[in-house]
Each structure stands twice: as C-alpha cells, then as structure tokens.
Write a protein that binds this DNA or RNA. Structure first.
Lengths: 368, 368
DNA sequence: TCTCCCAATGAATCCATCT
DNA sequence: CAGATGGATTCATTGGGAG
C-alpha cells in the first residue's frame, strides 16, 4: 500500500508510511502545500504533581511520560509555534487542521493557531460518555476534550461534507458537541507486556467523524503526533492516504502492525455508538435551575398526605428528612423506594400537577 | 437592599449596585482582595478596525488583511490583560473567576488567564439544547459556549459545593458539560422598542448553577460586563451580594428594573447539601472517654478479615501494629490509607455496627 | 452456554490541618 | 516549610471467573 506521489515536480510524498523522528524536522522535509488535512494530538502538558488514588485505594495510572513534560508555558508556546509553522507550510491553501487538547493546553494552542493565520471554523467538544470521575470530589468531572478545526487562512475553501454529517446525525445538522465513548475494550491496544500500548489512544469513532466530515477519498492526511496510529488506521479504512510522524519506536511498531491489519470496511459500523439512546435522564435539579420550580416552593404528594419544600440544589426537605425527591418520598411513606417523579406534585391554578409534566417538557425541548 | 461594607477599614464596597462606567476604571476604585467571585462575559466583537495603528504609528491599511487581523488580536489581548489584572487585584486570595466565551475569544482569554497566574480548575461546556442552526451549511452547528473556572492562584482554597452539585445531578458527580437551553421566552428581556434588550443575554439557569457551585450565601459576586444583569438577578435570588459594572445606560436601566423585581428565596431553601468535610472533627478517643466503647473491646473490619483491640488512649492494637484507627486499618490492608471510621465495626446484639454510627451520635449532640 | 458478580481502569493540573 | 496525621472520595464499561 505504500506509495509516493510527486507534487508540482518537487519531492515525493511518503504516503501511508510512518516516519520516524521529530515532527518538526520531518514536516520540514516535505514539499510545501502538499497535504489536505492535518490531525494533531500534541502533548497536553498536564503538569501532574503527586500520585492519585481511587477511593478503593488503587492508584491511577497517570500520564507521566517524558514527552508530556514542559518546563513552562513559554516553553510549551514555543514548541506549539514551531510545529504549527511547519504544519502550515505543508498544508495546501484549501487545507485544514484539527488539533485536540484539554484545558491544560488548548487555549495556548488556539491562540497560536490564530496568531499563525489559521482561521477557526469550529471548536468541537468531544463529550465522553464514560470519563474517569473526579475521585476527590474537588472539581467537576473532566468529561470532555476540545478540538479546534481551522482552515489554513480566512477564505480558504476547506472541505466540509455537510450532507454526510447530517446523515450521520439522523438528518439533523451535526452539532459542535459529539458524544463518544473513550477508547477501551478490544480497541485499546496492548503492548507485549499486556499494558496499554499508549496512554492516550484516541477512539476510532472520533477520527472517523473527523475524516468523514473534512476530507474526501484520496486526500492526504498527516498526523505529526502519530502515537499508535488511530489516524492512519481510520484513514486507510476510509480510503484516504496518510502520513504519520512518530518519535518513539515502540509506538511506531504497534501502529504499523495495527494498520497492516486494517481493511477498508463498511464504515457505518463505527457510528453505531453515536445513534439514538434511551430517553435522556433529566435530573430534578434542572427544574429548579430553569425556574420551573422555585426554591422554597412546596410540593405535595399525590395522596395529599405529605408535603416537602424544594431547595436550591434540587433536594427536598420535609419534617425530619432531606434528600432527593425519591429518598424523601420513600421515607415519608415508610417504603423502601419511591418514584419521586410520579409521587410529587406542585400547585398550578390551585390544582395539583405532577412534576413529571415538567420533565416531559424538558425532554420535548431536548428532542428539538 | 443596597448596602455598603468596609473591608479592613478601607473604602466601602458598593454592594448590590450597578456601577456606571468602564469596568477597568471601576474595578480599580474597589479595595483589593475584597470580592469572592467574579463572573465575566467579556465582549469579543470589538470594533477596533477604525483606529488601529502599527507600532510605527502609521495608520493600518484597511486592505492589508493580515495586518488587520493580527493587530486586532493584539488589541484584544491587551484589553483582556488589563481587565484581568484589575479583576485579579480585587479578588480575595481564595476567590475564583468564571469567564464565558466562544471560539472567537476564549482561547485568548484562557491564555491570558494562565499568564496572569490564575489556576484553571475546569473548562465547562454550556451545551445549548436549542442552538441557532447554521443556515449556510458550511460548518457544524455552533451549539455550545465555553466557560473557564479558575482560582486566583495555584493552591487557592476556592469554594466548591461538591455535594450540592451532586444532588442537583441526581446524585452523580456533576460533569464539565452542562446541558441548558438558551435564554428566550419570558426570560428574554425586551427594550422599550420591543427588541431584545441585549444580544447575548445569558440564561438564569447557567448562573444559578455557577453561583450554587462556587459561592456561599453572603458572598460578594462581581460582574464587570453586567449587561442586563443576569448575574445580579440570580445572586439576589440566591442570597449572594453582587456588584455590577456596565457602561451602557440602557442596559443598566433594564437590569435595575429586572433586579428590583426579583425576590430572594427563603433562607432555609437556600441551605444546600453539605459534605462530610464540613462536619466537625470527632477524635476516636472520645468514644472511649464517653464509654461508648470500652478499653479492651474488640473491633472487626467490615470485610471480616481483621480485628483489633481498643486501648484506653483511643488507639488500636492488632497483631503487629499499634496506632490510630486509620493507621492500623491501612497497615492491615496493606493500603496507602484507610478511613478507620468506615472500616471498623463493633458488635451489638451479635451484629457488626460501624463505629461511624457512634460518631454521628456525638455530632448530633453537638448540634443541640 | 448463559448469567451474575467482582475486579480493573480511563489525558487528573484531585485534601486539610496541625506539629 | 516540610512532614505527619486524620480521614474523605468514584462512574461507566469491560472482561474474566464463578455458578
């Protein structure tokens, strides 16, 4: 499958190969304006300090690899500026770039992208359906990563397969937030020691959507931080040519083996995970946040025997018990459990109305 | 409701007022380290093109697009740097800031936040359940905005009401992606001409969650880009004090009228679910002193595998260790740490009961 | 073979207080 | 300020082994 092409009579393009070495040096060897799309998953510069344990005392396997360490923001900025400059040179005028990151690095990457003259088209949120929780209860669960999609310049005639995206999304415009599970199970590559081969392997479904949306068959996709080659594997599957650059020999080996095993397959198999799910869960707290119920308002039980007051955090308080709508209902009824949605009612025009009516309203909005 | 306080004998803090004028100048008039939280929705559609100058003072040629774009970013960065510096000065050491933006400006804001010494805690995605569709079908539907939550410095003891957020979300950790509708319907304010009063009015549900999560009742919340006063309205409702700064008289008028109509919710409805961390500390030795446990009595672990003897000084002794309930538990389990309160049980009527039950009894007495 | 239960794990800037 | 100590804290999914 390895092939080469010549661009404008210049040097050959090493298609469907994994180039060893530093990405800046390797990109600088390639002819300018020769690549259709760049997908980049640069180091995030996580700046982790001590160890972290789960509540069950097991230790979290953190990203402590040397390649993710930078001395300062300035060092990271310089690195970003340099690889972006090299990337921009080899990009065709109508080409585009995707970069993925987290809050540790993405703001710096976005700034440097804009400074380099790239034109941001969308920021796209990968909402993880199964993120790692926050074990110490100190912050919000870090449940997403951010991707920036940008054309080489303002006015660049970038590729966007609008209809394909719409079709993928039940004939509704594809939004800027994508819900996809993290990469684990059989898709997660293992090394010879049985450990995960790479600490940050991206799911193929993510790349599938990126490539389907912003490239055409036969396009050249370059990934300067190739890792275990998700970009290459999906590109091959979808009939795109890839160029990977990776410094670590161990990652290159795993990636090459992986890509050799890839066959062009019926691509919609990958998108199964993104199709419709069951009725979305609506937390009771949303009714309060949205002002459908007011903190301090009284709810009454359907049988008229009990009452409870709504609090600002979406819990109820009754005579001697505080907690969720379900818990308080169960306690007041002396029952092991209780469906608070059908149990509790509020008054509208003097008549009791089930709070479930409000949940229906929210679900109806969500379907739009 | 307007009131003033004095901080450390300095100038008064103009609480629950909307200050007219430029936010940087107005913030500079306030005493330093006096504000608990800042919520900022900075503008990004700055009309800067008309009066831009190159470093050599020559007028920018409007045809020269590259210069134009670069200088416009530079001007925005300077503006961001200045208002962030003013904001940081008035923030208490354990205070925090929220900034909301879109891909046009959020990367620049995030970078400047980090450069100013703020410490990012989370980036939070407001996922709009009813966004404006992309009419031209050239990009993805822009269906979210990004908020950055940051403490004043690394190590700042910021406020985070973890349990309240969990309660609000049906007893699972609140994630970094928040699904909320955009502001429309009755909540959307109109001006005297029947047009929408402000182009980017934020929904109250968003501020409700922000303030509930990261402030306590009585905290001072400052919004330097007050607009039509969503921050002030929700702050009043939730029993927080606000300071608004707004340049445009028309917005100030609308905001003032809106806030005057807001009712504060009952203070008992403002009470939120609290964490165990907030509970007073009870030394294990108290259980022995009070005779709830006798010296010489045996405790058993919840998993039934281990046992230890209570000593008169509130330490335990097992096979080959002596020490606190935590230390002995950790040692016996070979774990890095152990919560002795939940690990150890005593026998009552032949059945194991957690020693935490005894701690609860003491705490209940303390509350009386 | 099928089901149930337990263990493992994922890009994480993850404690507070006193000595 | 470093070090020691008390004690608080998790969600969705996968896979393997037991039954």
């Amino acid at each position: 499958m390895t092939k080469t092409t010549t661009q404008q009579g210049q040097r050959a393009l090493p298609l469907n190969q994994i180039l060893p070495g530093d990405c800046i040096a390797e990109m600088n060897k390639l002819p300018e304006a020769s690549v259709d799309l760049i997908f980049a998953d640069p180091p995030y510069n996580l700046q982790l300090k001590g160890n972290l344990h789960r509540p069950d005392n097991s230790q979290v396997d953190a990203v402590d690899d040397h390649w993710d360490q930078f001395d300062s923001f300035k060092a990271y900025d310089t690195f970003t500026e340099e690889w972006l400059a090299a990337a921009r040179r080899i990009l065709k005028p109508d080409g585009a770039i995707w970069v993925i990151g987290s809050y540790h690095n993405i703001f710096r990457v976005g700034t440097k992208l804009q400074d380099a003259g790239f034109w941001i088209l969308n920021d796209v949120i990968w909402r993880k359906s199964n993120p790692m929780p926050n074990f110490r209860g100190m912050r919000l669960t870090n449940a997403h990563e951010t991707m920036i999609w940008a054309s080489k310049s303002e006015g660049g005639k970038y590729t966007f397969n609008y209809e394909a995206m719409k079709a993928l999304n039940d004939d509704v415009q594809m939004r800027s937030d994508w819900v996809l599970p993290i990469c684990n199970g059989h898709e997660r590559l293992k090394n010879s020691r049985g450990e995960k081969a790479h600490p940050t392997q991206k799911p193929e479904a993510l790349l599938h959507r990126v490539l389907l949306a912003t490239t055409n068959p036969g396009d050249v996709v370059l990934d300067p931080f190739f890792g275990t080659g998700t970009t290459g594997a999906v590109a091959k599957m979808l009939g795109r040519d890839f160029i990977g650059i990776e410094r670590e020999a161990e990652y290159r080996e795993v990636a090459q083996k992986r890509i050799d095993n890839v066959r062009k397959i019926d691509s919609d198999a990958l998108e199964i995970t993104t199709s419709k799910r069951a009725e979305p869960r609506v937390p009771f707290g949303q009714l309060v946040e949205r002002g459908m119920l007011r903190p301090g308002e009284m709810l009454i039980s359907g049988n008229g025997k009990n009452a409870a007051k709504v609090r600002a955090d979406g819990t109820l308080v009754a005579r001697d018990v505080k907690g969720s709508i379900h818990k308080v209902g169960a306690h007041l009824e002396g029952a092991p459990s209780c469906n608070g949605w059908t149990y509790w009612h509020f008054k509208r025009d003097g008549k009791p109305v089930s709070i479930d009516v409000l949940r229906q309203q929210i679900r109806a909005e969500m379907r739009d």
